[in-house]
Nucleic acid binder design. Structure first.
Lengths: 255, 255
DNA sequence: CGCAGCTTTGACCAAACTCAACCACGGTGG
DNA sequence: CCACCGTGGTTGAGTTTGGTCAAAGCTGCG
């Protein structure tokens, strides 16, 4: 079942901004108690927006902040020293960024905005305090970390064991379903702001081969992309091809 | 700096077993307070051992337990419906298993023992209680989840963007360094209980090509494997080839 | 001995990569 | 108004890496 929610732009500001958070109204997210909300609010240091194509977190620097994506699309990536890039995963509203840096002296991964992105910022050094004051929120953060790892696990299976067509099928379904779940679908279309280089880097394929594979599946009428929007024409065929079936997902915590 | 610690077999039993935990003596792990230790102990429901080659967690069933590896080597994996298998990562003493299942209705991944493995078992349904009673331990569990995700991130870069020789180089260094850190090295050798099928499945290569690549690096005298033990002969060459440099690691939490 | 599991090798094949154009489209500035 | 440019998509030709198939060693064991 798909619900459509209004597109978001900037997080609310002023006193008690989280009370008026439109993202949190989305039923994809777990409700929180007032007490938890006050704590999240106090942990929040402000907002930030990043233009399309600009870095959210530089790959080689430890980020001084943690973020929750409020609106827009971004991705996590790593590059090898000769420039080969691997996209580790895509980030949508509600995704929490920067946890890993907490536990390592940088050198984790970079984050880049695909569309314009707005973020809620949190003070990294107060993370422990959050766990301490509201263990429930700590539990939620662990939940988010575990979910993200599961997504990377899936991508690893893709890069390691699926052929080009299977990879593309699986990625299209994955992105569609994630956006749909957040109510970002509009009559069967979801925003698809990626270029073929993004797809190639996410799937571990070359740009040219990605193009040819994309083309082939499009000519088979399995999906359609038009003016930056994606429509899945044959969800069943794509799921079967990619051997990838999204599990029914519970409500997600939102920090 | 490498320290050698005695090989472990079974976790201690009887009253207050964690007091006599030999794994926890290892300086690779963070110290805990007595209070925390008592809580971990109460969370612990017993021990289990699994023979080499046997499943620790079945791929398609949600595990009723959480585990910490006490001794031995294991791996996490996923298989596609036609049998292709991808190893997601290797597990060594101190690694915490089963977190992801907590947050999804099964269908995550399987775990299989490579050598004989002993485990400390924990009651999954009491995880939240642990967070609640000792937020510090919750924080530690998040630490472990984040560290594991970083390892999967690295593997994804490998499968997506490295060629066969680079993959092998990176895997050998990674496994050597992890074992070394736990004091499992003996005069420059670490146990290497994997067969070439394991390596192939971890790297996303075919068995035959893995063999040829392994052979090539061995003939270049970059490493040596003898009777199930691995020695790195040219660490610098392997690190450079794999474009992979282990960061200096802090002490790890141990649940 | 004979079998099972693992490794090794060679021959051949194909998926994916690289290179090199070319095309479409939306600015932008003369 | 249109030539020019930059970005991103498309296509073909030729190459390479890695996959597949098949067979032969090697080791340990009942």
């Amino acid at each position: 079942m798909t619900l459509d929610y209004p597109a978001l732009s900037h997080p609310p500001t002023g006193p008690n901004p989280c009370d008026r958070c439109l993202l949190r109204c989305n039923p994809a997210f777990l409700p929180v108690t007032t007490e938890e909300l006050r704590l999240i609010e106090s942990f929040r240091t402000g907002t930030r927006s990043v233009e399309a194509g600009r870095p959210v977190i530089e790959e080689d620097r430890a980020s001084p902040q943690l973020y929750t994506v409020y609106s827009g699309w971004a991705f996590r990536y790593k590059t090898l020293s000769d420039g080969r890039r691997q996209i580790l995963g895509f980030l949508l509203p509600g995704d929490f960024i920067g946890l890993q840096d907490e536990f390592a002296d940088s050198h984790t991964h970079g984050v880049e905005a695909v569309t314009g992105v707005t973020l809620c910022c949190f003070a990294r050094e107060r993370l422990w305090e959050l766990f301490h004051a509201q263990p429930k929120l700590g539990y939620h953060i662990t939940w988010l970390a575990a979910r993200e790892e599961k997504m990377v696990d899936d991508s690893l299976v893709t890069a390691g064991r699926r052929n080009a067509a299977e990879r593309v099928a699986m990625l299209l379904m994955h992105l569609y379903r994630r956006a749909e779940r957040l109510g970002m679908a509009r009559e069967g279309w979801v925003q698809f702001p990626f270029n073929q280089q993004h797809i190639a880097d996410a799937l571990g394929l070359s740009l040219v081969h990605t193009n040819k594979t994309l083309r082939r599946l499009q000519q088979l009428r399995l999906y359609k992309i038009d003016a930056g929007w994606l429509r899945i024409l044959e969800p069943h065929a794509l799921e079967t091809l990619g051997d990838y079936f999204e599990r029914p997902l519970q409500a997600t915590p939102l920090i």
